[in-house]
Amino acid sequence: MDTMRIIEYGSCDHQAMIQLRDRILRKPLGLVFSPEYLRQEINDVLIGCFEEERILGCCILTPVNDITVQLRQMAVDEHLHGKGTGSRILSFAEEQARNSGFAELMMHARKVAAPFYIRNGYSVRGEEFVEVGIPHYEMFKRL
């Protein structure tokens, strides 16, 4: 049984989260995290899905303004794709955002992930754009 929890910045769980994000999101694109990039997460809400101590998936919530929070760095272990882990993480993130007073959750979703977000109630806003060398859409959901 998996459990969702908030991850403390700089903790062992945070290190596991960085390793998962690196494996799923960065290495396939030939990218690496810089220490400066990772330091920007210090005030964000770091969310992890765990089975005991093993991280299964994660995401980050970064406030944009008083009403909007951005979901970033959503990653799920490749062996769990299509098994509901991502939807559970997303639901937990939405609950955290709502409880913090945000009215909208938005993201820059990879084009290949857009169908997942649409199935979870998100809408595309604007035109396709390129970020980190691959196609993305801005997507959002009212909370």
Rank of each mutant, 00 (worst) to 15 (best):
D2K: 06
T3N: 01
M4T: 02
R5A: 03
I6R: 07
I6P: 00
E8W: 00
H14T: 06
H14W: 15
R21M: 13
D22M: 12
D22I: 01
R23T: 14
R23D: 12
R23I: 09
I24C: 05
P28N: 06
P28M: 04
L29G: 11
L29M: 13
S34M: 09
P35W: 05
E36F: 10
L38W: 07
Q40I: 04
E41P: 07
I42P: 06
V45T: 15
I47P: 02
C49F: 06
E53A: 11
E53Y: 07
I55P: 03
G57R: 00
C58Y: 01
L61P: 02
T62Q: 13
P63C: 14
P63K: 13
V64M: 09
V64N: 03
D66K: 14
I67R: 09
Q70Y: 05
Q70D: 05
L71R: 04
R72K: 14
R72C: 11
Q73W: 11
Q73A: 12
V76N: 00
D77T: 09
D77N: 12
E78K: 12
H79I: 11
H79P: 00
L80Y: 09
K83S: 08
G84Y: 10
G86I: 05
G86M: 04
R88T: 07
Q96A: 06
Q96N: 07
A97I: 07
R98L: 14
R98Y: 11
N99E: 14
N99Q: 13
G101H: 04
F102W: 03
A103C: 06
E104M: 14
L105W: 03
A109N: 06
K111W: 00
V112S: 11
A113I: 06
A114W: 05
A114K: 13
P115D: 05
F116G: 04
F116T: 03
Y117K: 03
R119E: 05
G121H: 09
Y122P: 03
R125A: 14
R125I: 15
F129E: 06
V132W: 00
I134F: 02
P135E: 10
H136L: 07
Y137P: 00
M139N: 06
F140G: 11
F140E: 04
K141Y: 02
K141G: 09
